[in-house]
Design a protein around this nucleic acid. Structure first.
Lengths: 142, 142
DNA sequence: GCTTATGATGTGCGTCTGCTTATCATTTGT
DNA sequence: ACAAATGATAAGCAGACGCACATCATAAGC
């Protein structure tokens, strides 16, 4: 049987999240990205998303609130938004080469920072933790 | 060597956190608690905290913003706030019996919900994940 | 064709949050 | 005794957020 008493998962992860966000902020600032902007670029780089509503849902944002983010990204040349010839209501979202570059540069720095936070774990602990996180994340629909 | 490419930890944990908070909200509502109120009760139940500023820092809240939370908890009879005889600037915080009861009832339901989210993990995965979470959490100062 | 549904976008509202400043009582250092 | 620091509290401000509502263009079903 497991430990009878443990801190709430939410409490533990909330502390971790604070540390992660504090670490990420300077990196994003250095690349001229906001948290939402980075989330959008990451999503578009990893998996194609057709509609803005789907994108908003994928990153857990309000669909009316990502419009500004998308405009900023487009103006910076990091994404394209072209009307879909097959359904002209839809604006097809795609990451540009410049967007891919900035995303990957930021991600590299962010994952370095994450590894620093994970320093002190054994290789087994690290792999198990990341594996479970990934499993739970992919299962909860993202 | 580890996987060469993985999603950001922050991205994965953010999804988990959303699922956790969505699960917790109805439980807290049923017990007449807010997230902050629950965090305060949990902290006071687990480890003594002398000043309100220290409490605010412990739960990652702004010290000017927990005052309302403390007043609500006091009015509900879940905490006591008595002036410290040794330093009358300080108001000593303590959880009451009623507070302890409601906190433990809520926590039991919350941890049940957490276990549902963890269902599908092997016992080893579950233990490893919780263990690492706890380790990282306790190390980042809480 | 006409009604209904869908997608993008804009607007406004109420809330939460972090941050700053100010006040008051009290303690502490000199 | 007096100045400086500390703790609790209040008030104000700006930004971010979720949500509801409204508009407009376009598609799709009947």
């Amino acid at each position: 049987m497991p430990e009878q008493r443990r801190p709430d998962l939410g409490e533990m992860l909330a502390g971790l999240m604070r540390a992660l966000m504090a670490m990420e902020q300077p990196v994003l600032d250095a690349h001229g990205l906001t948290m939402w902007g980075y989330a959008v670029l990451s999503t578009l780089d990893d998996r194609p998303v057709r509609t803005q509503a789907a994108l908003a849902q994928a990153i857990g944002a309000d669909k009316t609130r990502i419009i500004g983010t998308l405009e900023a990204l487009q103006e910076a040349g990091f994404i394209s938004r072209d009307p879909d010839p097959a359904d002209r209501r839809v604006r097809l979202l795609a990451i540009t080469e410049a967007g891919r570059r900035v995303r990957r540069a930021a991600q590299a720095r962010i994952q370095e920072g994450e590894e620093e936070l994970l320093a002190g774990l054994s290789a087994g602990e690290r792999a198990a933790f990341l594996g479970v996180a990934r499993k739970l994340w992919s299962r909860s629909g993202s």
